[in-house]
């Protein structure tokens, strides 16, 4: 299937003609996204930096509410404002800072160069539009195709995500499809313009376990075919282990550890990461850290509006010392490519 024939928006062409291999596709630097609520400021994303390379799958994990979705929405400029706002930082996509773009420039990138797949296809698809029309829109908007041409493309896309009898499905509405089929349609929509980057925000969480694997397989297959990068946000650490090349662990709006996938699963450094990995069952081997039982991380997650001083994890950390309460540990490179924000690791106690 030749996707290179699509006419492209002028801006996109400019990005592509530049040499891209020497810098990451997406480079987030010191991103701060806050929500200004009457009760106080919620630092949902607080000084987050990471990058995603070309054709790379990067896993973004962390407990519920740690700012994964807000990170993804910040990239697309979809933070609800008010109350939310990107306070500072840079989001470099193919070398251009998305934060500095005009809303119109950013809109032309959304759904075209960077696409997003949401968690619940049932509520993320418009119930009043046929699956076909929802894909057609993407083509008419970004490629300026006629509805007829766009419809043909949409059909090809449905075929590509392995929806049976696409010629008929194209006229069907979200409520007529099963959960798995809906998510396939969502993927078709996201991949329509052959984006360079996909933000997949828990793409399988709402699906049956058997379907989850199929959807992930499909995404990865298409990712290889199209050369797309994926930021895979998920609670499914198994999926991360299987598909991601690197993993970023977030805790309460901050990145606490970042490493290639093997080191993170074999020798996690941050006590939070250790806890996170101990809280999932591991087949055929002992849980990480040599303990057999599944564990949960003790202690309460502090609220984002009354965060402790110093390391946010210290109230729950068994290794915490005096300095953890006072001073925020910065990320430092422990091994090449393995960065961690922890005093205990840094000081070696």
């Amino acid at each position: 299937m030749d996707l290179g024939i699509f006419p492209r928006v002028v801006g996109a062409k400019k990005f592509e003609s530049k040499k891209m291999n020497d810098r990451p596709l997406l480079d987030i630097r010191n991103l701060k996204t806050y929500f200004f609520l009457p009760e106080g400021v919620i630092k949902a994303v607080d000084n987050v930096s990471f990058h995603v390379g070309n054709r790379e799958i990067v896993g973004l994990v962390g407990e519920s509410g740690c700012g994964k979705s807000v990170t993804a929405l910040s990239i697309l400029g979809l933070i609800q404002s008010p109350p939310g706002q990107i306070v500072s930082g840079e989001i470099l996509f193919q070398g251009q800072d998305l934060c500095k773009m005009s809303p119109e420039q950013l809109r032309k990138i959304r759904g075209n160069r960077i696409a997003m797949i949401f968690q619940e296809p049932m509520i993320s698809l418009n119930p009043l539009y046929s699956i076909g029309d929802q894909i057609v829109e993407v083509y008419t908007e970004h490629y300026g195709l006629s509805r007829q041409e766009a419809r043909k493309k949409a059909k090809e896309m449905l075929e590509k995500v392995q929806i049976p009898s696409p010629a008929r499905r194209i006229y069907e509405y979200p409520h007529q499809l099963s959960g798995g089929m809906r998510q396939r349609a969502m993927i078709a929509m996201a991949l329509a313009c052959k984006p360079a980057m996909i933000l997949a925000d828990e793409p399988t969480t709402a699906l049956d376990v058997t379907i989850q694997a199929q959807i992930l397989e499909l995404m990865v297959e298409l990712q290889k075919l199209m050369g797309t990068s994926i930021l895979l946000i998920t609670h499914n650490l198994g999926a991360v282990a299987e598909y991601a090349k690197r993993v970023i662990v977030m805790y309460l709006g901050r990145v606490v550890e970042e490493a290639p996938v093997i080191p993170i699963f074999e020798s996690p450094l941050h006590p939070y990461t250790v806890g996170l990995l101990n809280s999932i069952p591991k087949l055929g081997s002992k849980a990480i850290g040599g303990k057999k039982r599944l564990e949960e991380i003790p202690g309460m997650v502090p609220g984002l509006n009354d965060l402790p001083e110093g390391c946010y994890f210290h109230p729950r950390c068994s290794k915490g010392r005096e300095i953890c309460k006072r001073k925020e540990p910065k990320l430092f490179e422990n091994q090449p490519g393995h960065r961690v924000a922890c005093w205990a690791v840094r000081e070696g106690w």
Binding site: L78, I109, G111, E120, S124, N126, Y129, E137, E141, M189
Partner: peptide, 21 residues
């Protein structure tokens, strides 16, 4: 609603997001 966010994430202009979706 989520589907309004999806419509925006697709890069549709506000006009279509509001008056269409």
């Amino acid at each position: 609603e989520e589907y309004v966010r999806t419509a925006r994430a697709k890069g549709l202009p506000e006009r279509i997001v509001i008056y269409g979706h």
